[in-house]
Amino acid sequence: MAEIRIKNVAKQFGAFTALHSVDMTIRDREFMVLLGASGCGKTTLLRIIAGLETPSQGEVWIGDRRVDKLPPRERGIAMVFQNYAVFPHLTVFENIAFGLRMAKLPQSEVDRRVKRTAELMHIEQLLKRYSGQLSGGQRQRVAVARALAMEPDVILMDEPLSNLDALLRLEMRAELKGVLAESKTTTIYVTHDQVEAMSLADRISVMNGGYIVQSADPVEVYRNPAARFVGSFIGNPPMNFLPATRAGTNQWTVAGRVVPGPNAPRDRIEFAIRPEDMRLGEDGIPATVRVVEPLGAHTLVTTDVDGSMLRALVDSDLSVAPGDHLSLVPQPDRVRWFDPETMEAVR
C-alpha cells in the first residue's frame, strides 16, 4: 500500500512562498500528474515528497509512515530527473544497479532486476555503454529503468520527457504509460505539458501560484474546469471567455444574446466555451473573423466579438476569410460560467 497523503504542506524560500498549504491524497497505484506553468510550485511539491526539499510546514505520509523528516533513501521512492542524472562515470548496467547496490542486494538479484528492467525499456543492448555514448532518448530509458529496478512503492517523475524532441516524446509517453501501468506503483508526474498530462494521468492536479486549483480526472478537468485558470491553461487553444450581464433570473446577456445560465449572486459573470464546442448556425454569437489558421482536420478561426477574442474550431471544408461575419452557436451543454471576482466556476 503506497497511498501518499500530503497534509497542510507549505514551502517558503525566504520571502517567496512557493507552496501555500497544500492538502492532497494520491491513491495507491494512481498515476497523478501535477500540471502547471513554470514557477507554480509543482516541482517544489515533488521534491518535498522526494525528500530533496524540507517543507516549511505540514506532513507527508507514504502508506502508514510519516516521511517528511526521513532522508530520501528511507522513503521507498525512486525518481526520474528532468536531466536524467544518469551517472556519466558508470555503465548503463551500473547505473540501473546503483540503487540495488546501495541496498546491498545480492549479485544474482541485481543481475535479474537489471536484466528485467533493461528489457522492459528496450536497452538490453546498451548495458555496457557509458551515458556519453547514449542519445537523449536512451538516457531517458536508463533513468526510467533505474527507477523501476528499485521496485519502489512510489515513482516520482520531474518533467521526464521535456528534453526529448517532439516525436520521441510521443513515443516515450505511450511507452511510459504502459510500463508504469504494469509496474503497479504509485506515480507522481510533474509536467507543464497539458497533452502529456491528459494522456498519462488517472488524475490531474492543476497548480497555479503555489495552490492546487483542481484535482480531477483528465476529462473532468477539461470539461468542467473548477476555476477560470484551469480553462485558460488546459486546451489548445484554451477556453474562450466572454463577459455576461444579468438579464433576469437565470438569464444572462452574452454578446447581445440572452442565454440561460446559473443563478449567480452577481450582475456580471463570465461565459465560457471551448473552441470546438461551437458550430455555425442561425442566431449565434455574431463574430468578425480576424485570423484563419488551417490545422488540417480543423480550421482555427480567431474572431472578434464586441472587442473580446473568441476562437472557434470549424470544419476545414468551410471557406472563411478575414473580415467575414460568422454566427457561432455554442453547444448548450458545453457552456461554462465563471465568477470574475473569485475566478471560480459558477454552476
Binding site: 533513501r73 521512492i77 525512486a78 525518481m79 530527473f81 551517472f87 546503483f98 540503487g99 541496498a103 533505474r146
Partner: peptide, 10 residues
C-alpha cells in the same frame, strides 16, 4: 542532480 539522484537511490 547527480548528488540528488544518488541520495534518492539510497
Amino acid at each position: 542532480e547527480y548528488g540528488e539522484a544518488a541520495e534518492v537511490f539510497g
